[in-house]
Simulated assay, not measured.
Amino acid sequence: MPQMAPLLWLYLFFFFLLTFIIFISLNYFFKPFEKIDFKASHSHVTPQSAWKL
């Protein structure tokens, strides 16, 4: 569409870049939830605390 203003394409490009960067960063920082293993939760073994040596 050459009749559109040339600056509009620049604004659309920057809007696309901004939304793409936000989308990639959200996908990087927010991991999907881990599935709960119900069979392991019924066992009587207590897990060790991670902060104890």
Rank of each mutant, 00 (worst) to 15 (best):
I24P: 00
K39L: 11
W9G: 14
Q3K: 07
L26M: 10
K39C: 01
T46F: 08
F16E: 02
Y11G: 07
L26R: 12
F23A: 06
M4H: 06
F38M: 07
F15N: 08
T46P: 03
H44I: 09
L53N: 12
V45G: 01
H42R: 13
M1H: 12
F33H: 07
F23C: 03
H44Y: 09
L8H: 01
K39M: 05
T19A: 11
N27V: 05
H42F: 13
F30T: 14
F20M: 07
F38K: 12
P2D: 13
M4N: 11
L12S: 02
F13M: 07
F38G: 01
Q3H: 13
Y11R: 08
P6H: 02
A5G: 04
W51S: 08
M1T: 10
W51R: 04
Y11T: 03
I21W: 03
K35L: 06
I36C: 02
L7M: 10
F14V: 13
I24S: 05
W51G: 01
L26N: 11
Q3P: 02
H44W: 06
M1K: 10
V45Y: 04
E34T: 08
L12G: 04
W9C: 09
K39Q: 11
A5W: 07
F38L: 14
F30R: 12
K31L: 15
D37C: 01
P47G: 01
I21Y: 04
A50N: 07
Y11S: 08
F15Y: 08
L7F: 11
D37T: 00
S49F: 03
M1I: 08
L17M: 09
Q3I: 09
P2N: 14
F30C: 13
P47E: 03
L10E: 02
M4P: 02
Y11H: 08
F29H: 06
K31R: 15
V45W: 02
I24F: 06
P6R: 05
M1A: 15
P32W: 00
K31W: 02
A5E: 12
K31I: 03
E34K: 14
S25W: 03
P47S: 05
P47I: 00
